[in-house]
Design a protein around this nucleic acid. Structure first.
Lengths: 251, 251
DNA sequence: ACTAAAAATGATTGACAATGACTGTTTGTG
DNA sequence: CACAAACAGTCATTGTCAATCATTTTTAGT
């Protein structure tokens, strides 16, 4: 069995089983313990797995994120409606921050002919913005696999060099006590930086995000206005409304 | 069995089996190991397969119907050949700068599994780099319509925060007296900044660029190594060679 | 049809990568 | 603390690789 073949095999095992021991891997691949260990070392270096005493587990288990493409088909209609509402807040001459992610991507078509200035950390966003002829600035940072978002210290620093009239964020979890949360701490820092540089802050979120809690905290609900479609329970709607402005758009 | 016949056979094997060893290929084609290796080398050069220790696997197929990435088939072959030569200078662990533009884009497939670190100012480059699983950093800057390059003061500043082992540039004009030139002064500044932060500098240019002069000067010929395909007059070749290293790759 | 040049092939080689066995050390558990 | 499992490091062996050369096959020119 070839090296790469074996390593892929280990990865596929992990996808099914969450945690696999070294012994198990030796048996199924017919390779020696040494070899398996070397594979694990390498796979860990490539950030694919996390080694634990006795075996290995997938790096991103609880903090799993669908890629941008997967996201883009689900809730498409909702996203467009939300984006349209968000766009209604934008005024001529505004300087905006667009967070990476599929929700904010839908906002871009509504910016055409608005003479706004946009800063973003999303690679697909930059592409789309210039296609629409919008004045676009991209911040620096490390490009994240999957979502094509720019993150890291340099990203945070770069954001601090701008001031925004309005900031539009996507988010994974909205919770009355835990506030706004997202799976990746790196992305959370970037979002936080953007918030701090902006006058008004908007969060674009479909109803499924409410009540959810992800790993990394971004901010309190009080700091932002939330735009969503209807589909919330009255109870949820009331709890959130106590803490911040909640815009509910009919589908 | 004819050469082409055999190579097609190898490809068909791969489509079924994902990974095929050299030994297997020898058996089914009745060819020697040497011959199979030569086939593999060639198929890899044509970007059809990816060699792994002990065999070969198909190159990632997820980009079968690309958009603007694979646009002009004009000079496509030239660009690939030049890119391949350029890639041969890259060593394990290098930190690289990839200038925006289509020439350097062709370099990316050759970086797969090379454990390099790449900084770029090209938006399509970032996209492609992360698709290939390469550690990628994007600099900040204003996004230029048309080329999707990041330029401006912020871009220049951002570049100065890195050091590169090697820097790969595209260029519009190469002239024995006017040096390297490009139409946009903004882009020229960015290129210059990249050059100043890098140990070794390479310019990727097809023969049509020689003798041309654009508006903004980037650097003198002496500062860079030029990689091109044949198609230059002896006179041109001689003049340039006096000033700098000229790598001429056969088509 | 004949011959020289070019291309393809198979065998060989030294360099290098991958492997499995073995070592002593570290880590978790009772 | 003791003990076994898991670990990283080293070594000899094996497998794989690119480079080279001699031989055969194909192509081109006369």
């Amino acid at each position: 069995m070839l090296t790469i073949e074996r390593q892929n095999f280990i990865l596929s095992l992990l996808k099914k089983k969450d945690i696999v021991t070294v012994k198990e891997m030796c048996e199924v691949t017919k390779a020696s313990e040494s070899t398996i260990r070397r594979d694990l070392t390498e796979l860990e270096k490539q950030q694919h797995i996390k080694r634990v005493h006795g075996g290995a587990s997938l790096l991103k288990k609880k903090r799993e994120e669908p890629t941008l493409l997967e996201k883009s088909t689900v809730n498409q209609r909702e996203k467009v409606v939300i984006a349209q509402k968000a766009a209604s807040f934008i005024e001529e001459g505004d300087s905006l921050y667009l967070d990476a992610g599929s929700s904010t991507l839908e906002l871009i078509p509504f910016l055409q002919n608005k003479s706004v200035m946009v800063v973003t950390n999303g690679i697909p966003h930059v592409q789309m913005l210039i296609e629409y002829g919008i004045e676009t600035y991209c911040i620096s940072g490390k490009a994240k696999e999957g979502t094509a978002a720019l993150v890291g210290t340099k990203a945070v620093e770069a954001i601090k060099e701008y001031r925004f009239d309005k900031c539009f964020l996507g988010i994974n979890g909205i919770h009355s006590e835990q506030g706004l949360t997202t799976p990746d701490p790196e992305e959370a820092s970037v979002k936080r930086a953007a918030l701090s540089q902006s006058q008004s802050n908007y969060v674009l979120a479909d109803p499924a995000k409410f009540g959810e809690v992800s790993f990394a905290n971004v901010a309190d609900l009080a700091n932002v206005q939330i735009i969503t479609t209807d589909g919330l329970s009255n109870e949820q709607q009331e709890t959130i409304s106590k803490q911040t402005t909640l815009e509910v758009v009919p589908l």
